[in-house]
């Protein structure tokens, strides 16, 4: 097993393996739990802080120009849904689960369990990646939605409580349209596909015994974060060209 695993190849292998033999439901549920439920508090807390920072900074800067904060809420909501929500939630999920996936994959490589999988007619793509791929495609969009809500609610609490914005002014969807929701959905779905694949690929490329597992775990986090940023860029470009 000295071939370098490449991310696109691994994704295709996992999808092929999935269509041939879908992963058992119990396994998917377990992975959704370990990716989704274990990250939800972390994602909500970080997004809440980010939402408050966004609103505070935005309101202070706006007050220096115009004493009117009525568009602070809608602008916060739109930018959270379109840009910051998918980006920050994607980064936070990478932080929370990336290292763990890579460590498990790396340990399998170091102890040559990946060879055992191949001999028994399975593959790391089928055993390791496919269930997590399904799980993350379910969990990451859900986490993104919950994270956006946490950010908007926390920011709104600050805006209403501190800056005295009327709740109906702040929590207004006047600037949000279907295009924004589509961009958010596309970004978070693609994040859910990319994070497990990039993390698992980093783990499967582990070299040099148990110390290599640590190296793989750190590079998994960085690689999946870069994948999230690239997806952010690509989807924003497509949305701009398509006029969404």
């Amino acid at each position: 097993m000295n071939r370098r695993v490449n991310e696109i190849g691994l994704l295709i292998q996992a999808i092929v393996a999935m269509t041939r033999r879908p992963p058992p439901l119990r396994r998917i549920v377990r992975e959704v739990f370990s990716c989704g439920n274990r990250s939800i508090v972390f994602v909500c807390v970080t997004m809440a802080f980010f939402g408050m920072i966004l609103v505070y900074e935005g309101c202070m800067q706006a007050l220096a120009l115009i004493p009117d904060l009525s568009s602070a809420g809608p602008a916060t909501i739109r930018s959270t849904i379109r840009v910051f929500g998918p980006l920050m939630a994607g980064l936070m999920v990478s932080f929370r689960v990336g290292a763990g996936i890579a460590a498990e994959a790396g340990t399998m490589v170091v102890t040559e369990q990946d060879g055992a999988l191949l001999v028994s007619g399975s593959s790391p793509a089928e055993w390791l990646v496919a269930p997590r791929l399904v799980a993350c495609i379910i969990a990451v969009p859900a986490l993104t939605v919950v994270g956006c809500l946490a950010g908007i609610l926390a920011g709104g609490a600050l805006g209403v409580g501190w800056f005295g914005i009327h709740p109906s002014d702040f929590f207004s969807l006047s600037m949000v349209d279907r295009g924004d929701a589509a961009v958010c959905a596309a970004k978070s779905l693609l994040n859910g596909m990319a994070i497990p694949v990039f993390a698992a690929a980093a783990g499967l490329n582990t070299r040099g015994g148990s110390e290599g597992v640590g190296v793989a775990a750190t590079s998994a986090v960085v690689r999946s974060c870069v994948a999230v940023a690239v997806i952010e860029f690509l989807v924003s470009t497509v949305a701009r060209v398509a006029g969404a």
């Binding site: 972390f42 970080t46 980010f50 920072i53 936070m92 340990t107 148990s210 775990a217 986090v221």
Partner: peptide
């Protein structure tokens, strides 16, 4: 090695929390 993997995970998670809290 398993403990080191967990520690790396905890490190990035707690660092991210610290960054957001300090920033606010």
């Amino acid at each position: 090695a398993a403990g080191a993997g967990r520690a790396v995970n905890d490190c990035v998670v707690v660092s991210a929390l610290a960054v957001f809290v300090i920033d606010l």
